[in-house]
């Protein structure tokens, strides 16, 4: 059932839009194109099944919040909270994404071609076979990977000009699980107290190659150029960063 349904979302409120999306997915529509999207929130929330949604325009906050299974491609920028508490599925953004991208995501994957705002990947957590993954082509603002409890965060820095460095501070503050890979260097002062750096091993390289491979496929870039620059791996120093905080 690979019927493609096109919707002109001009002037359509999110509630009506989501009702339409629910209807379409319930009757087995495989692919939906949303045109003229302009700020509608919650697109893809509460959709069941592996439907593919292509968005043309700028979706509003909480794109794919609580999402389970759908795959959303945005031809434009996403705003705040995209992939909020996501369980599974994919969000691919041909542009920038706002603050708290992937907040508290438990699973699923987010690929952002360009930059993201503050606190990307905050409180992502892995569980069993679920490993939330965020690949950011550009750079991120402060507190990226804050409170991370699991999952994978990759920053490629492709939007930085030659010699320019990532400017994010408090990277991985409070992190107690998962891993962050940053292409290029970051200084110690930019790191949260709870993270440490390590050399990449074979497993890391394989993982990065496959994630970068996917990234370049989505956004049509050259993988060799990306992989030729050194990556920094950040990991949580403690499983229990605040275990010694208390007096019993």
């Amino acid at each position: 059932m690979d019927k493609i349904v096109k919707i002109n979302a001009e002037g359509v409120k999110y509630r009506q839009l989501n009702i339409k999306l629910r209807e379409l997915t319930a009757n087995g529509t495989g692919k939906i194109e949303l045109h003229n999207i302009c700020g509608q929130r919650y697109i893809g929330t509460d959709l069941e099944g592996a439907v593919e949604i292509e968005i043309f325009g700028t979706p509003g906050n909480d794109l794919g919040a609580f999402m389970d299974k759908p795959r959303i491609t945005v031809h434009g920028n996403a705003q705040d909270g995209c992939g909020n508490t996501m369980n599974s599925g994919e969000i691919i953004i041909h542009g920038h994404a706002g603050d708290i991208t992937g907040l508290a995501a438990r699973g699923g994957r987010i690929f952002v071609r360009d930059d993201v705002g503050y606190r990307a990947g905050i409180h992502m957590k892995g569980y069993n076979d679920k490993k939330p993954t965020i690949v950011i082509g550009g750079t991120a603002q402060d507190f990226v990977g804050e409170y991370m409890a699991g999952g994978i965060m990759v920053l490629l820095g492709l939007t930085l000009s030659k010699g320019e460095r990532h400017k994010a501070c408090f990277i991985g503050t409070g992190m107690h699980g998962g891993v962050i890979y940053i292409r290029g260097d970051v200084d110690d002062y930019q790191l949260g107290k709870e993270v440490d750096r390590a050399e990449l091993n074979n497993e890391d390289n394989e993982l990065l190659e496959s994630l970068v491979g996917e990234y370049v496929e989505y956004f049509n870039m050259n993988p060799k150029e990306i992989m030729s620059t050194r990556f920094t791996k950040l990991f949580p120093r403690w499983l229990r960063p605040y275990g010694r905080l208390y007096a019993y």
């Binding site: 909270g81 909020n84 905050i122 409180h123 409170y147 409890a149 699991g150 409070g174």
Partner: peptide
């Protein structure tokens, strides 16, 4: 995962 601290941040960051 078991054994990890379950940390609820002070604010909801959204």
């Amino acid at each position: 995962p078991n054994g990890t601290d379950a940390l609820s941040p002070a604010p909801q960051h959204d």
